[in-house]
Design a protein around this nucleic acid. Structure first.
Lengths: 130, 130
DNA sequence: CCTTGACTTAAACCAATGTTGAACTTCTAG
DNA sequence: CTAGAAGTTCAACATTGGTTTAAGTCAAGG
């Protein structure tokens, strides 16, 4: 019979994950210490990440470009199970996109506020296009 | 004959400006120390701001909501003369609006990147609307 | 077995954007 | 003239998002 013990998915060291996702090892440790990433430990106390953490980390960077704080990203990633399947990633990207759209709408409302002129400097309104 | 010496426009103390523009006095001092605002000094070394600094300060806060750093706002305000006329304010708001539109475009490109799925997590693309 | 590179933690440091406090001065109204 | 409100400077603190460094441990190849 083929073995009974759970097959380990490919485990990554801090450096592996950092290289694979394009961040510094110190950033990986920072994210883990702030709960954005989780990992197991070897007998010698070294971190071992799963393969999906490469995607997680890439999502973290994109979310930061959108303007989310580490706390907000943590909340966002809380939706994502430890071993995500395709549908989980899809739900995550949809949440993230909703957030981006929200930020875009906010910027548009600032734009309207500026364009209306009045509130800021008693100016006559201006065409708000680029 | 009507007087020869320049008539002083209404001068504002730190507290006056803070109240009028809705920021803390410490923030006013911070902006002045970083060159976003300029002021004269009384014989006793106290700051006196012009009336237009109320608008300047409001612009600073709006620019911050847009995501500009203090350094960027300083650059933006460098366009604005010490005693701005309407056209100066208009040019400023147009610059600021261009900046907002730029940030909106950036967010839209992040949105496309997320929606395309591929690069982030090898996902199939997703409808990128809200 | 031993060397070497990668890992560990903790703490210090950085830049940005202010706030807070101490100690002192100035301004203004009565 | 004098009390009290509001101003001054300087330095320390707070928060965010990490990086750097020190001192020491682990893992893997020869």
């Amino acid at each position: 019979m083929t073995g009974g013990v759970a097959v380990r998915q490919p485990y990554l060291t801090v450096g592996d994950l950092a290289r694979a996702s394009g961040v510094a090892p110190s950033a990986v440790r920072f994210y883990e210490s702030h709960g954005l990433l989780t990992c197991e430990r070897t007998a010698g106390n070294q971190r071992r990440f799963g393969k999906s953490d490469v995607c997680r980390t890439k999502v973290i960077r994109v979310a930061q470009r959108v303007g989310l704080s580490v706390a907000e990203i943590k909340a966002l990633l809380a939706e994502l199970p430890a071993d995500p399947v395709l549908a989980d990633w899809e739900r995550l990207t949809i949440s993230l996109m909703a957030e981006v759209n929200h930020r875009i709408r906010q910027l548009r409302s600032v734009l309207d506020e500026i364009a209306s002129g009045e509130e800021l400097c008693h100016l006559p309104p201006v065409d708000r296009a680029s």
